[in-house]
Design a protein around this nucleic acid. Structure first.
Lengths: 345, 345
DNA sequence: TTGAAAGCGCTAACAG
DNA sequence: CTGTTAGCGCTTTCAA
């Protein structure tokens, strides 16, 4: 056990008979140091298993090489993959990531951001609740590098990495139409969120662009939860007026539809065709497997991470960030994944 | 934008006309400070939106209030829930968590642990690959607080929070037996891992304890992946000798079984009954829903987090950790969750 | 109840 | 090529 007081750069310097400056130089791979000296120092470092104290270092260089990742819930099937992308990219640049789930609670978001700022993270990747433009404003005024993920809060200066929800929904519906379906219902996501709204817009646009009838009673309001998908399907069944196809604004709701159909002995895809959105991993494990619009979740995380680190580097170089330093939003493509739930019969 | 150089304790002191010591005192809620002074300082802090620099603070108090979480893959359906537990508990104590996925790669594990130690995390929660006892030894010698999660590396001094895999498997099989099934097959997990081995042991024990026939050809080696479950099932089908029930060492493999059965038109639970292990969230979303042994994943994370923080506090108090400071392993109970895949018909 | 001063472990001019 | 010195922003004796 033995306490083994942490060994410092000073100890190394002494053991080598050089100054701490010199040790610092070899630590940071600066050029101006005699090869022989360098070798000696390196050896002692190795032997004593010395690791520089990152905090002390951070304090003086004013950079921690860590970033914060703030998401609604790591348990939400959408986020682990995103998180992994963020982490992998961060690690490539020797950054660490501190993460925090907020359950979309304003107070929580506030709190964890505060905590992270005290820890002096170099920047933040955030997926915030809509109501929180104030937080972003405050971050702006403190000149903190931030990139938004998945959701973009309007009128924020910070760039976002996300998909085009409207276009993606449009493509989903267009696919159904191309397959020959005319009566297409939509189960919306949470309409308090931008993705929820945008996906509904995409649905409407596709219907109209194809000169199909846009019936308001074919639009059912959900909230992205499985249960809401289940209930929407129950409503359709109760109405006695089944559509030919359903576009659910996300996969979880599509799973709810699947379940309701099973109970009602409605066969998918024979009696009703179904498409979801997001391609969460489960969607390939249920039966019938879900046709869906795949979000490049891993890549979203990776790009956001990369963008943030680029921003941090700019700030580090210039001393601060100005409007023109921010990148344009990055919109990644979704991709149709055809599976059983829309199979031709 | 404006750079707005970070404001420091010194600035506050000046604006208040007091010394930094005094400001520090109110910051840390020390008693010895005049109420009136305290109020004044607090006001200025509030007005200037000042946040103390955590790094500087950490440097002197030698504690960062952050812990590292090292797991194989946040994408593995088992871990997000665990991570959430770790995080929630950490947050309750104002700790942050830095996380890292290692894919069970020794080199990765080594690297991220090193990175975290440089950042001076106060402790580590780890779920390491079996081969990595050396890492733990090194951590011990550096007197780092650590708790193991899910898997325990033998002969390590560090406590673990986990389930009793053997007993849990035993209970699963006993349940099948109690339901009246006699021919029960087992698809093992990765036998290079302790959980894989232990679950097989539990299966064997239950069979023997109940005086059933332990047939080696009823044990199929898998590796925890869905595919391996699928293939095992294919083998059973090909052999023309179906069991009455199957215990799959985890849910993913059970999912593979489900799929293979669908292809072969074997009905579950009518023709064959199936139980998995872990209760990953998917298991309730497939059809038929999977009967399984539920791991208290969230709680595992929470307990591990709590144990680690307790350890950190002890170390902080005593200056170092000795053998007798470590807690006993914490073994949490799994619970049978009955669902469709074992429904009586 | 308050402040001066030393120091946490490191980096970065500056001088030699 | 190397060392001296002055901090980074905070806490903590010690004295007043």
């Amino acid at each position: 056990m033995a306490a083994g007081e942490n060994i410092t750069i000073k100890d190394i310097a002494e053991r080598c008979g050089v100054s701490v400056t010199t040790v610092s130089r070899v630590l940071n791979e600066k050029p101006d140091v005699n090869d022989e000296t360098r070798a000696r120092v390196l050896k002692v470092i190795e032997d004593s298993n010395y690791r520089p104290n990152g905090m002390a270092r951070s304090l003086v260089i004013n950079q921690t090489y860590s970033v914060g990742l703030i998401i609604p819930d790591i348990n939400n099937p959408y986020f682990p993959e995103v998180a992994r992308g963020v982490e992998d990219q961060a690690q490539d640049s020797s950054y660490s990531v501190i993460f925090s789930s907020t359950d979309n609670k304003l107070e929580q978001e506030q709190e964890v951001i505060d905590l992270m700022l005290q820890k002096r993270v170099d920047g933040l990747i955030v997926s915030l609740s809509l109501a929180n433009r104030d937080i972003l404003k405050r971050l702006e005024s403190r000149n903190i590098p931030v990139v938004q993920l998945d959701r973009k809060i309007p009128d924020s200066i910070y760039p976002a990495v996300m998909i085009d929800n409207q276009q993606s929904a449009y493509k989903a519906v267009q696919f159904l139409i191309d397959e020959g379906y005319k009566e297409i219902a939509h189960i919306t996501g949470d309409l308090q969120t931008v993705p929820g709204q945008d996906r509904e817009d995409g649905y409407r646009k596709a219907i109209l662009d194809n000169d199909l009838r846009l019936a308001e009673d074919m639009i059912f309001e959900g909230n992205f939860s499985k249960r809401s998908g289940y209930e929407a399907m129950e409503q359709m069944i109760a109405s006695g007026n089944l559509p030919e196809a359903i576009f659910a604004a996300n996969d979880m709701m599509a799973l709810g539809v699947l379940e309701a159909c099973r109970h009602a002995e409605i066969r998918i895809p024979e009696d009703l065709v179904l498409i979801g959105h997001d391609n969460i991993s489960i969607s390939n494990l249920v039966y019938p497997a879900l046709t869906t619009m795949a979000q490049p979740k891993y890549k979203l995380g990776r790009q956001a991470s990369k963008m943030l680190i680029d921003l941090i580097n700019i700030k580090q170089k210039k001393g601060s960030l100005d409007k023109e330093d921010f990148f344009a939003d990055q919109i990644l493509e979704t991709k149709l994944v055809r599976r059983g739930s829309t199979a031709r019969v």
